[in-house]
Design a protein around this nucleic acid. Structure first.
Lengths: 114, 114
DNA sequence: ACGATCGTACGAGGATTTACGTACAGTCGT
DNA sequence: ACGACTGTACGTAAATCCTCGTACGATCGT
């Protein structure tokens, strides 16, 4: 199963933004950015409960928009953030989004303040 | 007609991204960023043909996500990009998005190349 | 007061998105 | 070969989004 990934210069910022304008997918990117090797199940477990078929949909959106790369390996499907490509085409975008997501998380969970 | 705008610290990056993950709204932000005073009709004219009621929908999305501010003035509705708030909360995000949009535009319209 | 202008509100349609369960295709270990 | 495991494909249902036409409220100029 080989997936179709857009080339670096086929990536559209509009697609990246709409891909990341979704809580589940933004969380996925945060997980991938944190490092480590991930396959679909490991991300799914980190997120909590989500149907596998639902995640398949999100993988497609992230893949088609050029945010992640999906690499079949044995019976698994390795997931990697396309950081090099994104940084090359949209300098600073990914970092701004990721630190923005951290800002929001800090605002919402103000470290045990009710 | 006073509109409800989110406070700076109520803005969510996820909402900003999904607001800007749409061609029409991304174009609006590009127009506002270019400077000058704008009301709904002037933006609408710059964009070409779009029903006023359709734009009203986009204004709401942009307003609710904290991207623009809508300021009634006489019978007009002045539109301003909330750059200060966005830059304060998400440093570099807006600039990265705007220059990304310019990158895409340059890729798609390679200056009269068919 | 009157007509023109600005923009929203409402309602409708069609398309797209998100989510799920089920079924299936490939791979691994034994 | 067999069962366990990984992840996709497909169909479906609910929700949301995008667009438009029409109607309305408010303001301006005369």
């Amino acid at each position: 199963m080989a997936f179709r990934h857009p080339d670096r210069d086929q990536i559209r910022v509009e697609d990246v933004l709409s891909a990341l304008g979704n809580g589940v997918r933004l969380s996925v990117v945060r997980i991938l950015d944190a490092g480590g090797e991930h396959n679909c199940t490991s991300v799914l477990n980190t997120l909590g409960i989500t149907a596998k078929s639902t995640m398949t949909h999100h993988w497609r959106v992230l893949r088609d928009s050029g945010v992640i790369r999906q690499q079949p390996s044995g019976r698994e499907n390795l997931l990697v953030l396309r950081r090099e490509d994104l940084d090359a085409r949209y300098p600073g975008l990914l970092d701004a989004i990721l630190s923005g997501a951290r800002t929001d998380a800090a605002t919402q969970h103000p470290d045990s303040a009710a």
